[in-house]
Design a protein around this nucleic acid. Structure first.
Length: 409
RNA sequence: GCCGCGGUAGUAUAGCCCGGCCUAGUAUGCGGGCCUGUCGAGCCCGUGACCCGGGUUCAAAUCCCGGCCGCGGCGCCA
């Protein structure tokens, strides 16, 4: 077997080498009379990569009831000492240190547990979507225009032309729904925003769903099932990891409660918060609201139309829209809506927002050819990860996070 | 970008408010010794640090100013 030197204990007569691999930690025992192995033992440094050939034997004194008596130990790569980060979990590290020394940090049990949980959740979400008839797709990540105005894009030199990294698969996933009916994509998106918070990244993984012949109610039903299944499977498949994390994800009972924006604003106003009618809710508002609502997760539905992008279907009243946010505590984990499928309305809404419909011809054109009513949502994977792991910062759930400050490693 | 808090050995921290008793304490790591089936092994010895630049003062890790860096809150943000 092969792994990393997790710890060493020298008791003279016996030397214990704790070897860690993806399955866990196993004890290797070296006796005093094994001269060469003892020499090697002294030279080994923590986190060195080694391979061990030996006999596994049961021994009640060993942790887990068995241990390995080696006949041969090969040092594959001797680690430099001292380590810039404690992997064994004895000494904590600042988040900044952890990202600087990320590969060592990723070997820590706690960090590995987070990524395992995220992986289980991804598989659960895919399975739920596949079983509901969704097709997994990919949309272009180099694009010609912003999906909507405002958000800052990362420019890319593209054969002498200016292009951008996609901030969202939005428009392309809609077009794909116009062919496959039900599509989803799990892929990166980029935003060059000033946002500097524990739940924003310049590069993040977005879980996107788009479904034809559907409205936002249908989209919410899929979303709550996907999230509930992810939470359930994490609890069932990764209990060991959750124990390491000392965390239990919420149990999500369906249907998840829906609260209209209007009711949310009213409840907030009644509790003494100042809410500008028709404006987006601020983070402090959402913190307060989650206390008032008393649910771990809930939907805020029917947002004011003006807070939503052009492709969102307005309600007949002209004020609100067929839209929703999925909220955990004070954090928006996903948002979606019924989309506008009529070209004339799309053009009108683009103009209202100061966007030039000519730049969207690649998108609008297909609304002349039977684009069905459709709806969908987008979810920040790492934000969901916060709910599933109890991590406090989305960066912890990205192996090599990209934010305003970090471009390396 | 604004506000708040912070920056002490490889790592994580105590000390700072109330300047001198700091030759800067502790844990972990590292080096050495003892112990000898440990299991976060234990015990002893050693090793290694005050972010940068100014200022105040007899005296600065400690007080003041500027800078850089980090974290949090907010803003911005589908």
């Amino acid at each position: 077997m092969a792994g990393w030197v997790h710890a060493k204990r020298d008791l003279g007569g016996k030397k214990f080498l704790l070897l860690r691999d993806r399955d866990g930690i196993v004890q290797v025992v070296i006796s005093k009379d094994q001269r060469e192995l003892c020499e090697l033992f002294y030279e080994l440094t923590l986190e060195s990569a080694v391979s061990v050939v030996g006999k596994v034997r049961a021994d009640a004194r060993a942790p887990g009831g068995f241990e390995v008596v080696p006949t041969r130990i090969v040092v594959l790569n001797l680690a430099r000492a001292p380590l810039p980060l404690d992997v064994s979990g004895k000494v904590p590290a600042d988040v900044d240190t952890r990202f600087r020394e990320r590969v060592l940090d990723l070997r820590r049990e706690e960090t590995k547990a987070m990524f395992k949980v995220l992986s289980v959740a991804l598989r659960a979400m895919r399975e739920e979507l596949y079983s509901a008839g969704f097709v997994e797709v990919f949309t272009p990540k180099i694009v010609a225009t912003a999906t909507e105005g405002g958000a800052t894009l990362f420019p890319v030199a593209y054969f002498g032309r200016e292009a951008y990294l996609a901030q969202s698969p939005q428009l392309y996933k809609e077009l794909l729904a116009g062919a496959f009916e039900r599509v989803f994509e799990i892929a990166p998106a980029w935003r060059a925003e000033e946002s500097d918070t524990p739940y924003h990244l310049a590069e993040f993984i977005s879980v996107d769903v788009e479904m034809a012949f559907a409205n936002y109610e249908d989209a919410m039903r899929i979303l709550e099932r996907v999230v509930a299944r992810a939470a359930r499977e994490v609890r069932e498949v990764a209990p060991r990891e959750l124990r390491v994390l000392g965390y239990e994800p919420p149990e999500i009972r369906l249907p998840v409660r829906r609260i209209t924006y209007a009711d949310a604003a009213r409840v907030l106003a009644e509790s003494g918060e100042r809410v500008d009618p028709g404006e987006d809710l601020s983070t402090p508002h959402l913190r307060r609201l989650s206390e008032l609502v008393g649910e771990e997760v809930y939907f805020i539905v029917d947002w004011p139309d003006k807070t939503r992008p052009f492709y969102t279907m307005p309600k007949d009243d002209g004020v609100f829209s067929e839209s929703f946010d999925f909220v955990w505590g004070h954090l928006e984990i996903a948002s979606g809506s019924t989309r506008v499928h009529r070209k004339d309305l799309l053009v009108k809404r683009l103009k209202e927002r100061g966007l030039n419909p000519e730049n969207f011809e690649f998108f609008l054109k297909w609304f002349d050819y039977g684009m069905p009513p459709h709806a969908g949502w987008g979810m920040g994977l790492a934000r969901l990860g916060l709910m599933l792991t109890g991590a406090k910062n989305v960066r912890e759930l990205v192996a090599f996070p990209r934010d305003k400050k970090r471009l390396v490693p």
